[in-house]
């Protein structure tokens, strides 16, 4: 129970790629069979959620990083200000 262990890296990647490929194929099949019931037209685009996940996540990181140029400061930003005044 309390032995040191290393995380199951290889197993994870194998499962991951299989599931990814499966999701791409299943999306086409179920879309073709009209198995999905969405509320908006754009959700019916093929691989919409794959693209949303991929692009959305990348944009999120990149936009935040760009914002970071302005709002990321030193760790003791607020403290340092008061020290300077003393």
């Amino acid at each position: 129970m309390n032995k040191l262990r290393i995380y199951p890296k290889k197993l994870f990647w194998r499962i991951y790629w299989v599931v990814l490929a499966l999701s791409l194929i299943l999306d086409f099949i179920w879309l073709y069979l009209h198995a999905f019931h969405y509320h908006f037209q754009f959700q019916y685009l093929p691989q919409f959620f794959a693209i949303l996940g991929l692009i959305g996540c990348m944009l999120l990181i990149l936009i935040a990083k760009a914002l970071g140029i302005i709002i990321v400061v030193d760790e003791d930003y607020y403290q340092e200000k008061s020290r300077r005044s003393n």
């Binding site: 999905f36 794959a50 996540c57 990348m58 990181i61 990321v72």
Partner: peptide, 27 residues
């Protein structure tokens, strides 16, 4: 299905950009 697929690809995006989300000693 839609949520699962979305998260699978979120992971891919994370893996590609993982160097960008490491921590730095900042505020």
């Amino acid at each position: 299905f839609s949520l699962t697929q979305m998260f699978i690809f979120t992971f891919l995006a994370f893996w590609l950009l993982r160097k960008l989300v490491v921590g730095h000693a900042t505020h």
